[in-house]
Design a protein around this nucleic acid. Sequence first.
DNA 1: GCTTGACCTCAAGTCGACTCGAAGTCGTAG
DNA 2: CTACGACTTCGAGTCGACTTGAGGTCAAGC
Lengths: 157, 157
Amino acid sequence: MKALDIAEVARRSGLPASTLRYYEEQGLIAPVGRRGLRRLYGADVLERLALVALGRSAGFSLREIAAMFAPDGRPRIDRAQLAARADALDRTLRRLRAMRDGLRHAAVCPAPSHMECPTFRRLLRVAGAVQARRSGAARAGRAPPGRRDARRPIRET
Amino acid sequence: MKALDIAEVARRSGLPASTLRYYEEQGLIAPVGRRGLRRLYGADVLERLALVALGRSAGFSLREIAAMFAPDGRPRIDRAQLAARADALDRTLRRLRAMRDGLRHAAVCPAPSHMECPTFRRLLRVAGAVQARRSGAARAGRAPPGRRDARRPIRET
DNA sequence: GCTTGACCTCAAGTCGACTCGAAGTCGTAG
DNA sequence: CTACGACTTCGAGTCGACTTGAGGTCAAGC
């Protein structure tokens, strides 16, 4: 077994060493051992990191990703959870698609000002409506406490 | 002109008053005046807020959105910037689409473990590759300093 | 044996977009 | 006229995912 030192894992994974230590702290990876103070990783850490990257890319938090590994270290992924995340992605996709089309249109729209373009105005109403719906505006006037924003950041490419 | 107080704007926009104040601090909106200490808003603030919501939905930061308003208050949106953002959204969409398909597949994949499913493994390689490419791994070994992660959070629905 | 420099730990800082709490002001209903 | 409560300001706190810096350890090369 050739053990990898942190620099090697960093080089091969593209992640800085500080991130690897942070991931370890978060229970996402673990070194197979140490030489003195220095961490030694097995080659499988790279697959694990790919799995983490995959999860992050799909919008999972590090905490959620950590929960996807069984204590024995093997990925134990809940299929229902995957399906749910796929559905969430679908919703995001629909929203972003509409947004892209709107932007695309606005970019070439002949109206002198965006505010005079019907398409743009429609987009505007939609964006405003999403917000109002989320807070229950004009119904209760006050969102139930503790009901924090469920949206989670997804990172662009 | 009927002036709206902050509670009314909050109600109609679905945003908490604290957010409206914060937006003002960030130069996104401004009250038309005050009655005593209290802010009074014109009706146009709602359109403005819709514009802000739109921008946020498209992945712009508040800073960028603020820059989209000319000093006179009218939206002065750079069409090239819109097109660029639309392209960025397109890339994000492609990535998320692949991710969704992968998740969907993994959720129904008959392989006993995800690691034995070719589709899942392919997805894994892709996710790992993105990361490695971003940091220039295996080429320079070190990303040029100051070149911070350009990805920006997009919020799900 | 000594130096070098890659690694270590731990605490603190960063960023964006808000939210919260304390303490103060003020218009209006009674 | 007073009390109430909706507003105000300002500073600090939160969250997630890291990064940075100070100060310490240690294996390997000279």
